[in-house]
């Protein structure tokens, strides 16, 4: 039996220019309905003039190792894929009660016009074919990386070993799997 994967995304904020290609690629790949986003760009400016720091972040579902959305779901529609640790939604099980949306500190979920909840899947359909998620594959600055953190030889493991990084709202206790190199 293959070792259990722990897929993660590592995004280099030093290289991201906030072009939004990842957002467009996601919309195309996953046929995201008009007016909705599974990923988005945040521009963050910190500090006091003239000592300002600016960073761009491509954000999405963090596929948390301790996912509050999955814990909150009353039907099991939100679940963690056994092989990959990717958090998914089964539309056939979803009642549209929105408990998972309330539970997500990152506001990464939304209700599709059909009535069920949707969000980033790390493009699991591509990952199963050995491809990178569409956002990672389309990034023109190569600031986005995808791989298995359980494999110490993977590019994401090596990046997190060699560079300082952060995750979003770690104090929420969700153990996110999207990392930002800083």
């Amino acid at each position: 039996m293959a070792a259990k994967k722990r897929y993660a995304m590592v995004i280099d904020t030093k290289l991201c220019i906030g072009c939004g290609d990842c957002v467009v690629a996601c919309k195309m790949e996953n046929e995201v309905p008009e007016g909705f986003c599974r990923d988005w760009i945040v521009e963050s400016v910190t500090g006091v003039f003239p000592n300002l720091h600016m960073e761009y972040r491509s954000e999405r579902c963090n596929h948390c190792s301790n996912p509050p959305c999955v814990h909150a779901c009353p039907t099991g529609a939100s679940f963690v894929d056994d092989e990959s640790n990717i958090t998914l939604v089964d539309p056939d099980m979803c009642t549209g009660c929105k408990a998972c949306i309330a539970a997500c500190p990152y506001d990464a979920r939304y209700v599709r016009p059909e009535g069920y909840v949707s969000k980033c899947t790390f493009c699991i359909h591509r990952v199963r074919e050995g491809l990178d998620p569409a956002c990672v594959a389309s990034c023109p600055t190569h600031c986005m990386h995808f791989g298995d953190l359980n494999d110490p030889e993977s590019n994401v493991s090596k990046l997190l070993e060699s560079r300082p990084f952060k995750v979003l709202a770690p104090e929420a206790g969700t153990e996110p799997n999207v990392y930002y190199l800083i």
Binding site: G18, G20, G35
Partner: peptide
């Protein structure tokens, strides 16, 4: 100050 530049306006 942090804001979303690529519009996320999920209903």
């Amino acid at each position: 100050e942090e804001f979303i530049t690529t519009h996320r306006m999920n209903p």
